[in-house]
Design a protein around this nucleic acid. Structure first.
Lengths: 202, 202
DNA sequence: CCGGAGAGTGAACGATGGTTAACCTGCAGC
DNA sequence: GCTGCAGGTTAACCATCGTTCACTCTCCGG
């Protein structure tokens, strides 16, 4: 197993638009973690996926856990930031806000099935402090949804809205399980329709 | 083929209503696997959870993988059998069949959150042959749903129904994420309502 | 009373895999 | 040209953990 040509080129004349080695590692790791689970993936595997040996990882990350922690933190941050942003941009109508949130989540899930998979499968593999941080971010994202759902269901209490939000996440985040069944646009439309129906039910 | 009858060996012990040691182990393992992930749980942990040492497990299972394999196979079998049964008992009306399937899945998910969690998180930790067997059962269960959904949406093709089925599973199987928010009955009603709305959307 | 099977124990073995150490290399900038 | 740092490499270290082994101990059937 020797290094192939292209990996060398990027190291030589650091192309600005080409992702850095660090980003390559994170992306490759996400893919592998999603396929086999983080604990079943060795540092050597991640290295091999980007054309280096295992210990080279330690030039870019403090360790395997740090890699996973950064991965999950980034996902949670992207979701929270993106969700908040879309709601703010959707005006004051809760129905429009809901549609914006759904569109965002569907888009994210279809664009990053590996991240979605790792996000909830490997949270338990995190050190306590990191897991707590990720959960804090997740909770805030959930509350963004809950705020919108609460305005759509004035009679429902927050707990019910939370259950509802998690259910919608589960619905939309099912994409890794149904990959390759339909083309992207059709899947997006179907999931968005289902999510909206589920959000409004009762 | 180590699948023996349910509680046959309880006859050996005086108190027959207590589950056999083998069943205790499976149940404790399911709980631990759900909490930390199967690869993070040691044989010693499972043993300790039922009051024995690690190696004692080997009196009841060929190994750790065999334990996980039996766990996942049982879940898949229970789902397939239960789903098929409920559909058959629901008569010819596809709407009634759908309600029966939803009620069954909701009931199962609320009754066995740990099994639901392990079922889709630790499938990747299985040996190839076992994983293939589990996936075969899962596929058959999905097809039970697809058959019902296809009759509700005559214009939709099988692929769309499959996406729909996975989305509904995701919705209902979100229970481990929203545990403790509402009481069981309220959660069941909410999820069933959302699932039905999602199933009928468009 | 006796012997065998089932169940459990503590100790040891071996593989796996994360991490570290020591060493190499090639461009950057005085 | 020297020097330094960024990034890689190989080899070794070490902890963890699944698994096996050689024993007990305790029922129970004959």
């Amino acid at each position: 197993m020797t290094t192939t040509g292209p990996a060398r080129d990027t190291a030589l004349h650091a192309d600005a638009d080409r992702p850095s080695r660090r980003e390559q590692i994170l992306q490759a790791a996400a893919q592998l973690f999603a396929e086999r689970g983080s604990r079943a993936v060795g540092v050597d595997d991640v290295g091999a996926a980007v054309g280096v040996t295992g210990p080279a990882i330690y030039r870019h990350f403090a360790g395997k856990d740090a890699m996973l922690a950064e991965m999950l933190l980034r996902i949670s941050e992207r979701l929270l930031a993106g969700g908040s942003e879309r709601v703010a941009a959707a005006g004051a109508d809760p129905a429009a806000q809901l549609r914006a949130l759904i569109a965002f989540q569907v888009e994210f899930a279809l664009e990053n099935p590996a991240l979605i998979t790792v996000h909830d499968r490997d949270l338990v593999s995190l050190a306590d402090a990191d897991a707590a941080q990720v959960r804090r971010l997740q909770r805030r994202y959930v509350e963004v949804w809950v705020a919108v759902l609460a305005r759509l269901h004035p009679a429902a209490d927050a707990a019910a809205c939370r259950v509802r939000a998690h259910a919608i996440f589960g619905l939309i985040n099912s994409t890794p399980h149904s990959a390759g069944q339909l083309d992207r646009a059709a899947t997006a439309a179907l999931l968005a329709g289902m999510a909206e129906a589920a959000a409004r039910a009762w």
